[in-house]
Design a protein around this nucleic acid. Structure first.
Lengths: 137, 137
DNA sequence: CTTCTAATTTAGAATAATTATAAAAAAATA
DNA sequence: TATTTTTTTATAATTATTCTAAATTAGAAG
């Protein structure tokens, strides 16, 4: 979903009623320059900072999962305590900063094409994801 | 830890008291041909199948984390519900079968060398992990 | 503009995975 | 064998997430 989107229209188009909670969440997620990596907790915190009326935790969960199902968010592969989501839904990889616990995008074109030389009979590859963990030098 | 290890000696060497619970867990984990990928729940189930006396759930958690700290187990990067561990502690990658929810080893030499063309200032790469998700054909 | 229906929000309960606690048991040491 | 330290254990606590059912809201129809 793009930064200067008419969120109300966009939501309606995809069959999601544009409630004020959903529009507010859209603004927090998509009205920004860079892609946004977040956990549900971080999102809840951001919303309550920007909003005078609070949004229920259950609504945040519902909305994030609805957006994921519609393809507006991607869930990210990490073995951490909490689940991360990403507003960048194109195919890409990630750096994970062990010291700050932050995720950073690693674009497809910044990785030399990966060749998997092993095949599994009867199975086809659906995705190849790279996680590059980094530490301070 | 190798298949035909003297677990009692090996544990003692690394400063872990060889209790009967730990030795039993070693047997379940390492007395097998192939590397073993498991969740805590699966491990508890395997133990109770092979063992007449039950081992407390807390002990299984304690032991798995102690083994991980000693480098006998590796925790695996997956955004699933439960956390996976791996008895193969060498550097390697994984297939994840979406239909069976199983992990399969993908050795380092089965992947063409990965070149990351982007660098992060002040950060050094500590690991590069690939997760290849597969579905039925 | 009001009425109706279905979707959505909400607070709080339920669940599941994991960690903490503190007493009892076992292992190592003297 | 006595003593000290580590480990196990059952249970409680915690955390993230999902469920539930009642109240509210959005959109459609009149």
């Amino acid at each position: 979903m793009s930064k200067n989107c008419n969120f109300i229209e966009k939501l309606r188009e995809t069959g999601l009623r544009p409630t004020k909670q959903r529009v507010k969440i859209c603004e927090v997620l998509y009205k920004r320059e860079k892609t946004f990596h977040f956990t549900i907790n971080e999102l809840v915190k951001k919303i309550s900072e920007e909003n005078n009326e609070k949004i229920s935790l259950a609504t945040v969960y519902n909305t994030v999962h609805a957006f994921k199902k519609k393809g507006y968010l991607k869930e990210i592969t990490l073995n951490n305590d909490s689940t991360y989501f990403d507003t960048n839904t194109s195919h890409h990889h990630h750096f994970y900063d062990n010291s700050t616990k932050e995720l950073i995008d690693l674009n497809d074109e910044d990785v030399e094409k990966i060749q998997i030389k092993k095949t599994l009979p009867g199975k086809k590859i659906s995705s190849v994801e790279i996680l590059v963990k980094v530490d301070n030098e």
